[in-house]
């Protein structure tokens, strides 16, 4: 995992098995060169806002996609999502929830807070791989991402 330079996908996942499986599926499809994983909500925010142990990261190089689990230590996924979507500097970042939760209220809360999409983790291994592949393909290839640089983006939106 690369901490330097541009990260394609930020994976926020505390379960080591799910983390391994997701990384494996994404790499197998060659959908991302640099995938960086963090294990809790606090680290996720530090990464995205370039603070704490990530204070040397460049704010102008946000990841192209954030895959965010909901049940996380320290700060929940919903709290991370809210912070990201409430801040004009990070609002446009595509955030896809990837969670084991089957609760309708988590689903609705995520979309209400501005999640770009919501994916339920299946129990079945092959289905999990298929889902990660499809999500990676859609968000890395089909979906148009916003400009990487937040300052450029804010300027473009105001033109």
């Amino acid at each position: 995992m690369n901490t330097e330079g541009e990260v394609d996908i930020l994976l926020v996942e505390d379960n080591p098995d799910d983390l391994e499986l997701t990384l494996h599926a994404l790499r197998r499809e060659h959908l991302a060169n640099n995938i960086f994983a963090v294990r809790d909500g606090e680290e996720a925010l530090e990464f995205l806002f370039c603070t704490g142990r990530f204070k040397d990261r460049n704010f102008d190089h946000p990841p192209r996609l954030v895959l965010l689990d909901l049940k996380l230590p320290k700060l929940t996924g919903l709290e991370v999502l809210k912070r990201v979507k409430d801040d004009p500097r990070t609002k446009a970042l595509p955030v896809v929830i990837l969670t084991a939760s089957k609760e309708e209220r988590d689903l609705v809360a995520s979309y209400n807070l501005g999640a770009n999409s919501y994916i339920q983790k299946p129990v079945d291994f092959d289905r999990f791989r298929e889902i990660v592949k499809s999500a990676g393909l859609y968000w890395m290839v089909i979906n148009q991402r916003p400009l990487a640089n937040p300052a450029q983006m804010a300027a473009a939106a105001k033109q």
């Binding site: 979309y111 916003p146 473009a156």
Partner: peptide, 29 residues
């Protein structure tokens, strides 16, 4: 607001893409 909205347009402009995400578009194709 919880309804997913996919923007599907001939526009490739960075300005449109930025505006749509600012307004809360779920996806832009």
């Amino acid at each position: 607001n919880e309804l997913p909205v996919v923007i599907f347009t001939t526009s490739h402009s960075a300005r449109d893409i930025a505006r749509c995400y600012e307004l809360g578009a779920n996806s832009y194709v």
